[in-house]
């Protein structure tokens, strides 16, 4: 990574931070137009950074730009929208866009898993709570963000640091591969050579699917993590069932003094 592109990257993050700062809800002081302009500038700067490393643009490249722009814009709206329901919906849009990016990387399993877990289960629960909590009006603690400057600075400095490091990694990766990363490579990276061989011996006629590779890696290298996560989830599920079984006696409940008649047996139905 050259120093020019690094400075361009920092510049993009500075612009983005300024944009988010102006977009954050602060009542009448919010400057959505200014924020949007800064944000657009930041995206253009990011585009310039990326344009230094795209080797051969094909049709998936445009999808990449479309969905990543959508993901970034929706992510900004998640934190800047004053109404929590819309924030949650924008988060779903982020998840769906990221899933589309994963599909472009031919990591369909991760894409669908992200949708099922985040969009299908977690966000439904969030939405459920948000909707129960407030119906229509936006209270002041939602319409004003606290410490917008500090939050934006910390967040974007952190993001710049991560992005610079990540850009370095991908640079070295593309340098060794000399082409666009192979289809299943994001998953291939975490697969043992031993499992590769066992998979190859398994069924040669069928193409080795991405799901199979994910399964192979989590069942070999990451099996302890999987077991721990599984036990944790099982415990929480058992806990949920146990909670739903608990019966709380009603306060002020008066038990019947006389034996109850039964409809249809001792008493004619109404």
């Amino acid at each position: 990574m050259t120093s020019e592109t690094a400075y361009l990257l920092y510049f993009a993050f500075a612009l983005g931070g300024a944009g988010v700062y102006f977009l954050l809800p602060r009542g009448a002081e919010t400057r959505p137009t200014v924020g949007a302009l800064f944000g657009a500038g930041s995206l253009i700067a990011l585009l310039l950074v990326l344009s230094t490393r795209v080797i051969t643009p094909d049709h998936t490249t445009y999808y990449f730009y479309l969905f990543s722009t959508l993901a970034i814009a929706s992510a900004v709206r998640v934190i800047t929208h004053p109404r929590p329901v819309y924030s949650a919906l924008y988060f779903i849009l982020v998840v769906v866009s990221v899933a589309a990016l994963l599909v472009l990387l031919e990591a369909e399993f991760l894409a669908v898993a992200a949708i099922i877990v985040y969009a299908g289960a977690i966000m439904v629960t969030y939405l459920f709570v948000i909707m129960l909590a407030q119906q229509s009006s936006t209270p002041h603690y939602d319409s004003r963000s606290r410490e917008p400057l500090l939050a934006v600075m910390i967040g974007f400095i952190l993001m710049a640091a991560i992005a610079t490091r990540a850009a370095d990694i991908t640079t070295s990766h593309t340098a060794t591969n000399q082409s666009r990363p192979h289809a299943a490579s994001p998953v291939m990276l975490v697969t043992d050579s031993a499992t590769d061989e066992s998979l190859a011996g398994n069924d040669k006629a069928k193409p080795v699917g991405n799901t199979l590779l994910v399964a192979a890696s989590i069942m070999t290298r990451y099996v302890v993590v999987l077991e721990i996560a599984g036990v944790l989830l099982l415990v929480s599920m058992v806990g949920a069932i146990a909670l739903s079984r608990k019966r709380v006696p009603m306060e002020g409940y008066r038990p019947a003094v006389t034996p109850l008649g039964q409809i249809g047996k001792e008493v004619e139905p109404f």
Binding site: E108, F109, V112, A113, I115, I116, A119, G120, A121, V124
Partner: peptide
Amino acid sequence: LYLLGVGS
């Protein structure tokens, strides 16, 4: 999984 995700 696609059907499951769409359904969810």
